[in-house]
Amino acid sequence: MGQWIIAYTPLVDLFLLHLGFAYAQYIVLRAGVFSLATAGLAGIGAYTAGVLAVKLGAHPALGVAAATLAGSGAALVLSLPLARLRGVYQAIATVAFVQIVYSVNLWAEPVTGGAMGLNNIPRTAGTGVLAVAALGTLYLVWAMERTRLGRAFNAIRQDEAMAATLGVDIVRHQALAFALSGAIAGLFGALEAYHAYALDPGQFAFPFLIAILSYVILGGRNSVAGPLIGTAILIILPELARPLAENRMLIYGVMLILVINFLPRGIADSLILAWRARRLARPEPAAGEP
């Protein structure tokens, strides 16, 4: 038993961290913003915490708080221009944001360590801390879903014009979703920093973006269980067999194509819809009336 726990701790930690990033991505998609900025926001959080820890020797709690604030602040600022864009334009703008964060990170070597990254970050976030953060995030996302926010996000995502005529302030709601997404990404970025000893800028670039996006697409982007399922599958899968681990990017690529074409809602959402359809198909004949 003890052996087993030790052997699998790194995997559990990885899962918990990525679960947080997946929810950061999930929240914006759910509010109808086609943002791919999560990687950049996570990078901002991670480096805020890392720099505070290494250069200033700040207390980890301060680092986490600062990273969360930095993430949500950056997201809030980013949401202003994004509010004027839609669809592919938002996607392009947010990819540009990720690139800007990456380039500035490389350039600001005296502060961020440049291409070498940051080393010797005290390791303070263990499995327990990660679990608490992940559970907190899970509760927040779950709770929010059941209130006016979830209802408004739902309407915006499905039909913005309809939502607006029903009184939903799209800009405000999307800004809020963005700020939350940034806060969560920043928080988990900081945890990543305090968990991994070291940071390097390439960590939060395109491959990261793709991994996070894959969790949400595979699991489902409209229900809370989606990112959980997607992250679990994609984190555990490579552990099952060596060839799976060696071909990770290939698997992600094939998976993205197959899922978006044949299971476009992802696993969780499809299951929920199928279950609901079955429940309705059973009782009273009147229910069959179209």
Binding site: V88, I217, L256, I257, I260
Partner: peptide
């Protein structure tokens, strides 16, 4: 939306 995702997939492959 889907086109961006699946073409990212193709790019990876």
């Amino acid at each position: 939306f889907g086109g961006i995702i699946s073409s990212i997939g193709a790019s990876l492959v």
